[in-house]
Amino acid sequence: MSDVTGGGSGADDAADSDDAAGADFDGAQRTGDVPTLSATDVEAGYDQHQVLHGITFESRDGVTCIFGPNGSGKSTFLKTMNGIVPVWDGTITYGDVDLTDEKPEDIVTHGIATLPQGGGIFASLSVEENLNVGAFTVDDADAIAERKAEVLEVFPALEDKLDQKARELSGGQQMMVSLGRAMMTGADTFLLDEPSAGLAPRLVDDAFGLIERLVDRGAQVILIEQNVRAALRLADYVYILAEGEVQFHGPPEDLSEEDELMELYLGL
């Protein structure tokens, strides 16, 4: 259970009642309260092959985008933050919690949820089971029921599909299951690994619309995306990675002045 998510444990409910107004999702009205996810001089790789050569990074309110060409290490970097790829050197912290050596199954309990590439839904499980898996680390049945109601309010299309196997849903609905499942964790920070990849072009806008909704609810989103133009419209802060190093970071306005960078790394 996330210690930054108020409505979780029963004892806090009374204290939170004035600020958990209405049916709003847990993270709502909390912009600015989300702990900063930061990496300092992170080195990592696979086998003997080093991919990341000292990445320093900080999540910002809203959407923090990470761009870079194929093989730049952006996906590997995301996986060091969710614990899938072990950190060789450097540190990763979330607020004042040290995540450097934590396992993925523990990191999610601090309030960081991942949407894997392709959505990562469990196709053979029902839609409701997918949502329940999202709440696997949550013990409070009331909190689970509340969040499920919230997810269905955001994605009413899922209401009639709860008993269906996730594989029977359309691509757009599967995207909703994936996002809904991540919301069920009660996370405040969402790591998104190329949400638009593999989606039909007409669904890409929908996907970005859904990301905006997460942000509106007070969440921080860290977004890896190949579709740079679409993602720039959402971005509040931008990192550009190449060859395992940060080549640029700053607000998107600064990026447009760096024509060379745009062309060199992003092909724009």
Binding site: N82, G83, I84, E105, A123, L125, V133
Partner: peptide, 12 residues
């Protein structure tokens, strides 16, 4: 179905 995604959901 998928070990890695299961871990990301907090399953030991």
């Amino acid at each position: 179905e998928d070990r890695t995604n299961a871990r990301l959901m907090g399953i030991n």
